[in-house]
Write a protein that binds this DNA or RNA. Structure first.
Length: 479
RNA sequence: GCCGAGAUGACAGAGUGGCUAAUGUGACCGCCUGCAGAGCGGUUUUUCGGGAGUUCGAAUCUCUCUCUCGGCACCA
């Protein structure tokens, strides 16, 4: 039984979708006013794994994740850099999509953009006004009227009204046309020099929270099975969504499960744009392979804080390499394996580890434990290869098992040739084989100096040479 | 002020009542090897922030103390 921690109840619950084995899952996407940083990667990789695991478990998943391509931040950034707002958001949307692709995040079934859903947003805001849950003001703003659903204040953040007021009162400028301090904006009147769309309340643009309600209802359903995002979205963003969506549809709950990923920190401080302590995904990709970055993220439970440092990435890379080496060992063993059915206990080993994998993942997606099991599995596989002679088919089953796991975790992708700029200058397979031949001759003549210098030369080009009992093998190294 | 997360061996990090506390990294030793790498075996690891309690039995439950981090209308 899959169990999931639900922020709404603060408990780990059995996962039962609203309808059969259909899962409607919505994850809040980025606001595209800059390149994404590693904290975003953390979030989207985590939800990618959750989505893949649900599919692995046989659920039919409809995964929707939006792009917020118009809001105050985008507009401000465009002003600062004297760029067209939509030019800017297009640029960073493309950058985001590139990053996701690099990290092996599967595209959502739908990736809706706010600017393409203005009409839907206006319709929803209108509906909220008609339902008595929102009001417009002479300034052309529309606010959600929290007093229409006071029982839902703090439902997700588990805060009291007093707590919220005390936290916010001293730090936020209160818009003077609000009826109530905690009301939030659904539609915001735009000045002449800012982007806007005509609406019943004048020229304006959507508020920050409304887009997710509108687009999730449009592409998922009025009620979601899973709504996800970073911990920092719980309040006010996700709570606002609950107010809006439930007031609009009259259905409760808006989402059955709320899943939130933990932060990525640097020196124990949250990585964020506002603190300026962030590394963009592209910066990190320049130093580490996508596989290493993804492994770094997946090797930590999604709700734990991950402290980022180069050392931590290096360690993750080494750990991952251990698994990759085993896979490569199996591939080589297959060449020399007898063509028989001797399995040396391999099928039992696989079955055991498959159920261990499912047990770990069923426990609120415990990827750390799941990967821990894989290390044990790999050690046993290495041991079998070294000491016994399993037949080809058994070894192929081992490879199949790794790729089965990889479907979910996505950590074994071969990215040894991903360094795009070195791509052209890298040494060809033929040249490598030629050098190895020369080196083998030197070795046969016990000319160790020559043999070692060839090995060093290849290593400088990122080629690792390994002499084994059954011949030489080589592979390309990546960070 | 309010709300939350956490403190596990050199480091990272699982484990939430019961065999010798997963796993990874690092370091060291051994096997293998011309050497190296990879791999395998072993050591670093009877200890889980401090104290008290419950229990036949606790890293795991209760109380208490100390410390760290995060959220409270910018945020993944």
């Amino acid at each position: 039984m899959l169990r999931v921690y639900n922020t709404l109840t603060r408990e780990t619950e059995d996962f039962v979708p609203l309808k059969g084995n259909e899962v409607n899952m919505y994850v809040c996407g980025p606001t595209v006013y800059d390149h994404c940083h590693l904290g975003h990667a953390r979030s989207y990789v985590s939800f990618d794994v959750i989505r893949r695991y649900l599919i692995y478990r046989g659920y039919h998943v409809n995964y929707v994740s939006n792009i917020t391509d118009v809001d105050d931040k985008v507009i401000d950034r465009a002003k600062e850099s004297d760029e067209d707002t939509f030019e800017l958001s297009r640029k960073f949307t493309a950058s985001f999509e590139e990053d996701m692709q690099a990290l092996g995040v599967i595209d959502p079934d739908v990736r809706p953009k706010v600017t393409e859903h203005i009409k839907d947003i206006i319709d929803t805001v209108t509906r909220l006004i008609d339902n008595g849950a929102a009001y417009s003001t002479p300034k052309g703003n529309v606010y959600y009227d929290l007093n229409s659903s006071p029982e839902k204040i703090g439902i997700l953040s588990h805060q009291t009204v007093e707590g919220l007021m005390e936290g916010s009162g001293c730090r936020v400028d209160v818009e003077d046309d609000k009826r109530y301090q905690l009301d939030f904006v659904l539609w915001k009147g735009s000045p002449e020099d800012e982007p806007g769309w005509d609406s019943p309340w004048g020229r304006g643009r959507p508020g920050w929270h409304i887009e997710c309600s509108v687009m999730s209802m449009k592409y998922c359903s009025e009620q979601l099975d899973i709504h996800g995002g970073g911990l920092d979205l719980i309040f006010p963003h996700h709570e606002a969504e609950i107010h809006q969506s439930e007031s609009c549809t009259g259905m409760h709950p808006f989402s059955k499960y709320w899943i939130h990923n933990g932060f990525l920190t640097i020196d124990k401080e949250k990585m964020s744009k506002s603190l300026g302590n962030f590394f963009t995904i592209k910066e990190v990709l320049a130093k580490f392979s996508p596989g290493t970055i993804r492994f770094f993220i997946v090797y930590t439970h999604y709700r734990s804080t991950i402290d980022f440092s180069e050392d931590a990435l290096v360690e993750a890379g080494r750990a991952r390499k251990r698994l990759l080496n085993t896979i490569s060992n199996v591939k080589h063993a297959i060449y020399e394996a007898p063509d028989n059915d001797d399995e040396c206990g391999i099928s039992d080993l696989i079955d055991e580890n498959r159920s261990a994998f499912v047990d770990s993942m069923d426990d609120d997606f415990n990827t750390r434990e799941a990967i821990g099991n894989l290390f044990v599995f790999s050690r046993k596989v290495n041991s079998i290869i070294a000491n016994e002679k399993p037949g080809k088919s058994s070894l192929e089953n081992v490879l199949d098992f790794y790729s089965e796991i990889n479907q979910v975790l996505g950590i074994f992708e071969d990215d040894s040739n991903s360094g795009s700029e070195e791509q052209d200058s890298r040494i060809s397979d033929e040249d490598i084989n030629e050098l190895i031949k020369i080196r083998e001759k030197a070795r046969a003549e016990k000319d160790w100096v020559k043999a070692d210098s060839i090995r060093d030369e290849l290593q400088e080009k990122g080629i690792i040479i390994e002499d084994g009992k059954d011949g030489v093998r080589w592979r390309r190294e990546s960070s």
